[in-house]
Structure formats: structure tokens, C-alpha cells
């Protein structure tokens, strides 16, 4: 069970431009928080900053996991503590197969959990977990032997992100526009897979531009994000309202939404 606390978080680009301008959020196990906002509002910047991306500077505030600040930690250590980010645009790693990557990632987390000594997952156990997760998320087997995200379609990349999440079993998952690039059937499968993981073991932040995914993952809280801040908060009803009315009503003067 893990508690994520984001306290008055400010995130700036290397040139000093502040993109995230004061965010407060508490995510408890079993909760789903939707963060909805127009393109360019800083949603991915927030997600990257939570994970510790070196291109973004924390210009104020703090992020705590179970009371411990994540800010001094690298991305690897944050992952080892149970944080996970499903990327909006996952990167390709040519020459590394999906299956060997998954095993390495699982082993990296196991090693951290074992206090730094190698504790590789036995191959039969790995195969069993992998097969179960793949069937559940309807990931085609042939993707396993392909190079990670290399030449994958948008939808394939998103499936592999969620497959990683299912196998790495994070305590807090941040999903950055996981719905984009998925057709409706894929969206149902993947959203179902995410919902199944939410529970006493995991809380989630679902970042999205559209309401659509929230039909399949019920959000406990909806936060409207514009120009680096939360400008409205509510429950699932707020998401529906946004869908019909658009973001304009929430945008501060002079900052047009482009979608």
C-alpha cells in the first residue's frame, strides 16, 4: 500500500520556463485520478517530472511516496520504489527484444527488492506470468520476439506499455494518454486490464485529453488541468461535462485551448 503526495509542485524547462505551476494531489491505493487537459497544457511534463526526467527541473514543491521525497532519486530508484509511467510516446530500443527487455526490467526490480543482490526470476515463472498477462491484454505473441517498440504501431506500443505495467506491478501508475492511438476494441481491453490492476495494491493517475477512456476506467476524481494548474476538480460527472462543453470555459484568459 502506497500513498503518493504531490505538494505545490512546480516544474520548469531547462531554460527556466515554468510549465507546471503549482499542483497538489494525493493518490491513495485503489484510487483512480483522471487528469484532463488540452494539448500543450503540461500534462506530460508533469508525468515526466514525477518519474524524474533529467530535462525537467523541479522549481518548487515536493513529491512524496509513503512520506519519502522522490526528488533526490533517479528514475531507476523511483521505479524500484513502485512508481510507473506509461509513456505517451514510448521509445524504441533496436536490437533488444520485448521478452528480454521485460525479463531485465523484472529482474532489476527484484534485485532492488532483494537489497541489491541478484535474484533473477526463474524462467518458467517468467513464462507463466508473461503468458497470463499477454492473454489478458490480448498482446499478440509475435511481439515478444520483436525489438522493443521498433517499428511498432501506436496501438502496439500502448499495449506493450500496459503489459510492462502488468508485469512490474507498480504501486502508483501514471498513464500518459494511453488511450491515444487505440481503436475501440483495443481501448476496452487495455482499459479493462488497467482497471483490474487498480486496487489495494495500486493507485493510478490517468492522463487524458478525451473522456473516452473513462467510460472503461471509472475515475474517483477528475482534475481539469490547464496552463500548468488544476482549474477544476470533481468526480466522473465532470469528465462527461468536459466532453460535451469542451475546455474553453476552464481556460484562463488569453490561453486558448487547441482541442
Amino acid at each position: 500500500m502506497a500513498l503518493l503526495e504531490i505538494k505545490d509542485l512546480h516544474v520548469a524547462l531547462n531554460d527556466g520556463t515554468e510549465i507546471v505551476r503549482g499542483i497538489d494531489l494525493i493518490v491513495r491505493p485503489g484510487e483512480v485520478h483522471a487528469i484532463m487537459g488540452p494539448n500543450g497544457s503540461g500534462k506530460s511534463t508533469l508525468a515526466y517530472a514525477l518519474m524524474g526526467h533529467p530535462s525537467y527541473e523541479i522549481s518548487g514543491g515536493d513529491v512524496l511516496l509513503d512520506g519519502e521525497s522522490l526528488l533526490p532519486l533517479g528514475a531507476d530508484e523511483r521505479a524500484q520504489k513502485g512508481l510507473f509511467l506509461a509513456f505517451q510516446y514510448p521509445y524504441a530500443v533496436p536490437g533488444v527484444t520485448v521478452s528480454s527487455f521485460l525479463r531485465s526490467a523484472m529482474n532489476a526490480l527484484r534485485k532492488a527488492r532483494a537489497g541489491g543482490t541478484d535474484d533473477p526470476i526463474p524462467i518458467p515463472e517468467f513464462r507463466k506470468d508473461l503468458t497470463a498477462a499477454m492473454e489478458h491484454l490480448k498482446v499478440p505473441r509475435e511481439l515478444l520476439g520483436r525489438y522493443l517498440n521498433d517499428g511498432f504501431s501506436g496501438g502496439e506500443k500502448k499495449r506493450i506499455e500496459i503489459l510492462q505495467m502488468a508485469l512490474l506491478r507498480p504501486q502508483i501508475a501514471v498513464l500518459d494518454e494511453t488511450d491515444s492511438g487505440l481503436d475501440i476494441d483495443a481501448l476496452k481491453t487495455i482499459a479493462g486490464g488497467i482497471s483490474d490492476l487498480v486496487g489495494p495494491e495500486m493507485g493510478a493517475i490517468v492522463i487524458t485529453h478525451y473522456q473516452r477512456i473513462l467510460n472503461y476506467i471509472h475515475p474517483d476524481f477528475v482534475h481539469v488541468f490547464a496552463a500548468g494548474r488544476f482549474v477544476a476538480e470533481g468526480d466522473a460527472e465532470l469528465a462527461k461535462k468536459l466532453e460535451s462543453e469542451g475546455y474553453d470555459a476552464y481556460l484562463p484568459e488569453g490561453i486558448p485551448g487547441d482541442g
Binding site: P54, G74, D76, A79, Y91, V93, A108, L168
Partner: peptide
Amino acid sequence: GEEQLFYLMSRGLSE
């Protein structure tokens, strides 16, 4: 690439 490295590290792999 820094991005590729970050992606892998976000899964728990050391640098």
C-alpha cells in the same frame, strides 16, 4: 539518447 536511457531507467534499470 537521453530519452532512450530515461525510458529504460523508468523501468528500474540502473544507468
